[in-house]
Design a protein around this nucleic acid. Sequence first.
DNA 1: AAGTGGTCTAGACCACTTT
DNA 2: AAGTGGTCTAGACCACTTC
Lengths: 261, 261
Amino acid sequence: MNQTVSPPAVPGQATVSGGSGSASPTFSPLYQQIKALIMQSLQTGEWKPGELIPSEVELAYRYKVSQGTVRKAIDELSADNLVVRRQGKGTFVATHHEARVQFRFLRLMPDAGDAHQPENHILEVKRLRGPAEVARVLDIKAGDSVVFIRRLQHFDGVPTIMEEIWLPGAIFKGLTAERLAEYKGPMYGLFETEFGTQMIRASEKLKAVAADELAVELLKVQPGTPMLSVERVAFTYGDRPVELRRALYVTTDYHYHNELI
Amino acid sequence: MNQTVSPPAVPGQATVSGGSGSASPTFSPLYQQIKALIMQSLQTGEWKPGELIPSEVELAYRYKVSQGTVRKAIDELSADNLVVRRQGKGTFVATHHEARVQFRFLRLMPDAGDAHQPENHILEVKRLRGPAEVARVLDIKAGDSVVFIRRLQHFDGVPTIMEEIWLPGAIFKGLTAERLAEYKGPMYGLFETEFGTQMIRASEKLKAVAADELAVELLKVQPGTPMLSVERVAFTYGDRPVELRRALYVTTDYHYHNELI
DNA sequence: AAGTGGTCTAGACCACTTT
DNA sequence: AAGTGGTCTAGACCACTTC
């Protein structure tokens, strides 16, 4: 039989299911249940990005498990990059307001020299009814409101990335071109702070394509120039897709870096 | 003070340094030392790819530490994909003779449908004096012997990948075109089995480039067609670079898949 | 000095596989 | 039944940070 935890003495406190009888059909290890509970608190914003979460001892008391079990749960959250541990200080909720996190989601590097902070140029922000394909990816109904963003990113003053971004309108209600343009820092940082939606993972598909008219105009390349096409679907908690992004990268002096491990 | 381990009673047995005095300049946790010792045994071939390594209990006895410490060491080795744990059976040395591992090192996926096993065509194998740039990457002396391989990979009968591979001649002594051509399975599997060299991680740089003459000839594409260029440096134990690979991918019906986590 | 995460141990029991 | 990895606990001590 699995490890079980007696119901909490305090009403409203989190409980842990473990299957205390032989008729328990589902099962997951205690530490996975603790991990799920902590993720819930992250998702609901009980502990916000950048903030300190309760100590291991305190969480162990709250969930009525040993510190070792909490530790293993947090170990996994740390491996998933949802939290960051700092010895002597505590465990912090990961945030996109950190260069370290940004590089996880922007893999374009200069062939020589150090990576610089890109300069953003918002070209267009509009609301539209989601095309079928976009709606399918974002897991919303076709025709539902969608925010569309067109953006240009300069590296060292050179236009290098052209992006088209689709977001669920229901989540990103007050998003305007002004807000995006005036915001200093990564777009995901804005999403996190202003819209309570944190991107925690993404899936990318890369291809080589020829520069189209728009790329020629915006990125100042010759027609037909080979461009790196990067299509991304980004997910928030609960594996909910909340962004579709199609980008074209100029890779003359830059490359997409990837580590195979 | 750090945890220390008394010297082994049996001569020749592995020892663990922990810094038993205040004058200990270097330090690493016990489990990291155990991890390093296990990696040594993997590198020297004491336990070969695909084989079972000793149980946690046995390793704990061998290194004179607790099972929990061995467990933590193996946990990391497992996270590094150097070993694979199987409940009830034991812990196995990872091997490239497994589809699961191959997909870690071949990220090209069909846009629709399932991934198939590619078909290999060895075009050329020769020995040459390493050009300065290749020697620099492989960390050998310029002019040292290098094995050069040119290969074509077909997906569903369509030529899709063209590769140029450079290997240190000192390691890959008996490598011939015949051996490569007749070998069924992944090239890294051959390297592992026949040359005792296992690729454990790789670093890739991706760009979009125009098809050159060779690509036009071998991959049957139009001149100037955008191609995905993938330059890889692969490493074996001790972070020793042992392969430089330059590939061109046709991405009309395929894409390079990447997960950002 | 107190609090945090990091390491290490010892022991118990569970789930899975093989004999 | 025996052996393996997987989970959970309790307790000790260490390294680091802050007060």
